[in-house]
Amino acid sequence: MIELKNVEKSYKLKNGFYYVLRQINLTVEPGDFVSVMGPSGAGKSTLLHILGLHDAEWEGEFYLLDQPVHKLKQKERVNLRKKHTGFVFQSYHLLDDLTVYENIELPLSYRDVPHSQRESIVCDALDRFNIVGKRDLFPSQLSGGQQQLVAIVRAIVAKPELILADEPTGNLHSDQAREIMELFKRLNSEGTTIVQVTHSEQNASYGKRIVRLKDGWMEK
């Protein structure tokens, strides 16, 4: 699914380059559940944003679903991202002015799914995750756990093959974190590939393998 070859990310400074990621070689197979770990500033989130096609300023080779991302134009990258990835953020990043329903519907509307289909897909998702009662509430009316649940539903509603999660439980208490991780495990068992960034060994244990980063380097 994912293949990184010598991927590097750096910032140009007055006296040279400051490297955030160095020579990253990583392969993620379909159905894998990878946890990326490492201290602050190790480059975890940077790596995740590269995988999520949010960041285009890097060097090396990156294949996503056999597509050479490093050769794609911006528009093609956006389409690839839109089609195949879902992203879960640490601070949920729900849109405050949209209801739960509208937040979940948003990725579908951006994928030009017809309105009637959108409605049934969103309703199914609300039902599946037991949040039908929350559909007309705004994010500010939900607890942190509920918000992250909605954010995950939003990330998977368009049925992406790959979910990228950046510290998905970072702002949650332990019970809520456990529920979210159980949910990820369930999604993974249903075939979704997951790459998560986490500080927590416990959360990492839900995955199939761990990739550790330090000062931008991947530990062997």
Binding site: H54, K75, V78, F87, H93, L106, P107, R111
Partner: peptide
Amino acid sequence: IRAALGAS
């Protein structure tokens, strides 16, 4: 966020 969710 909208861009990340796929908005062109």
